[in-house]
Design a protein around this nucleic acid. Structure first.
Lengths: 333, 333
DNA sequence: TACCAAGCTGACAACGATGTCGACAGGAGT
DNA sequence: ACTCCTGTCGACATCGTTGTCAGCTTGGTA
């Protein structure tokens, strides 16, 4: 395996100094065209490519043109769209993207953050897992900008881009109540996830506002997989006084619930998904826009990287209640 | 903004040399416990973290513990699952992952590859776009390992992990023929994508084998979006002698086709998708396993990185024809 | 001729880490 | 008392690149 050629190799071949090679490589002025041509020939003949590792070291005040994105799970469609939007913005800005999944594990999250910051990333888009993020303070203090997306971090003041989870859930429940439902179930993911907690709070608020007592018998938390949700729904339906309508805390749960749902029971689910409209009945959803979220977060991040040091702000993006049918099934009253 | 502390800062604070700090940081033996404790205290008090940029430079023969993955589009569920699997393996191996999207653009692909190799990635998982990949030879010659996934690259001999696209399409068509269809349409993505070309070839082969002449009137290429496919399908159905069955070259096209498909027309689509089973009728698919593909490619890549220099090999993963109903609708004969 | 400006180029140090090797202390063996 | 370890530690050079600054030409001008 031939070693990677360096500037020294190019310089020798072209009969100039490494400094001149550096100038040519970086398109700096002050090199005679003829000399530059000789250098270019040498570069091509050796297959030289600038080593950005060394470059980043030397130019220390400078940026590494690398940002990180750390999310729950790259395979999740919502996260994947978000990541894709971030990557697009990063590319426009001339940066590359390091990606990592936390898989809801705070330990893994810390490890990945550490692997990222030790590579001197300029900034980080973070979808925080539950738990304190005070460990990020060091990184922030030494110049790594952090923007949270989807959820905000506890124990750390950063920019964040979120949706109004509580208000959206509230609206969805009001929507079901307006269609005559009074016995409305909630099936949800882990309550220690910030978005889920907010959505559940919105559920409770809306019920209270309508004077409907919340009944723990038709509430389930901690559903991680679609199958969990299906089983939970099935179980709930077998009990006395089953719900006439259901709110699902997210897309995965919504899918699972739907598989167990008898005709005539209403469903509203957080998160739009492919095909929601082609199902029978089509599923009413609270749609978020992951692309807008990703690109907003990325733009915010780069404005920080480029020097914006105003106080941290939280951007709240709108959701849309997309009525498709499953949420408009009338209740018994 | 305080500068990031360096080993020199830690060394000064602990009253030792930088070399001793280095030894402590890397857990090397030969440091008195008491000294190490002093160093650890200094590290904590300053918030020191090793700078891997500098480290990678110094340890030149060594690896950067960074791999790249370059795919069409991170937002595509198939690619996202694949990327997620790659990231898992990379993490087990102690590496981080740079991600990039080519968006089917050869220019963008080259740019991203260049940005990756200039950062000295140890290896690259590549889902190649159409066109020659000879430009990768330099990178390969100087030590960047490349493994192609999903498609193989032209103009470059590398490892690859693919499925038997041609054979799978062939089987799908045989399946439709066995159900009595003779007028089978093909709707597909761009033919210059390797997988698509293979699938189309399988379509033609199966028809020829059954003695059915291929009819260009019921073949469409170049469908990029679901809406393109819906429009194409609608148009085809309006013509004389419409098809009784359809093969869709991939999931996006399959979705689009389905939206325009009258009851009674059979459909087999490449790529499984969430909810394919919950549709009415449920969609028969040729399922690939993106997680297996990603993790196989990643393991192959790391075995190369760790020194395996046997000749390039191509791993062919199986597909499953998942009969769910839409492909088992009987034809008119 | 002497001098200077402008344009081009190279020598050297530095970025932050680590590999090499030698210094030094203290104990064991002769 | 001398060597010879062994264990601990530091000085120095080095990775590939770039910032600084000085040196060299060249040509024009006084």
């Amino acid at each position: 395996m031939p070693a990677r050629p360096t500037m020294k190799d190019v310089a020798r071949q072209a009969g100039v100094s490494t400094m001149t090679v550096s100038r040519v490589v970086n398109g700096e002025p002050g090199v005679m065209p003829e000399t530059a041509a000789r250098v270019h020939r040498a570069i091509r003949s050796l297959g030289y490519q600038r080593d950005d590792v060394a470059r980043q070291l030397r130019r220390k005040g400078q940026l590494t043109q690398t940002v990180g994105i750390l999310l729950d799970n790259v395979a999740d469609p919502f996260m994947a769209s978000l990541a894709s939007a971030v990557e697009d913005v990063a590319r426009q800005q001339g940066s590359v993207v390091l990606i990592g999944s936390s898989r809801d594990d705070p330990v893994r999250e810390r490890e990945v953050v550490s692997a990222f910051t030790s590579r001197r990333i300029d900034g980080l888009i973070l979808i925080p897992v539950a738990g304190s993020h005070r460990f990020l303070r060091n990184a922030v203090a030494t110049g790594t900008r952090v923007v949270c997306a989807d959820r905000s971090a506890t124990g750390l003041k950063t920019d964040a881009v979120v949706v109004d989870n509580r208000g959206s859930a509230n609206r969805a429940i009001a929507h079901l109540i307006a269609h005559g439902h009074r016995r409305i179930a909630y099936l949800g993911d882990r309550l220690d996830i910030w978005t889920i907690e907010e959505r559940y709070a919105g559920y409770l608020t809306a019920l209270a506002y309508a004077g409907i007592p919340a009944d723990p018998a038709i509430v389930r938390h901690g559903l991680r997989l679609a199958d969990d949700a299906t089983a939970a729904m099935t179980g709930m339906l077998a009990e006395a006084d089953p719900p006439t309508a259901v709110l699902a805390s997210n897309g995965i749960v919504g899918l699972g619930v739907r598989a167990a749902l008898p005709a005539g029971t209403a469903l509203v689910s957080f998160d739009d998904f492919l095909l929601a409209a082609q199902l029978d009945p089509p599923v009413t959803v609270i749609a978020q826009d992951p692309v807008a979220m990703g690109s907003t977060a990325a733009h915010l991040l780069f404005s920080r990287i480029h020097g914006d040091s105003s106080p941290p702000r939280t951007v709240v993006l709108p959701t849309r209640l997309v009525a498709r049918g499953s949420g408009e099934i009338s209740g018994p009253y």
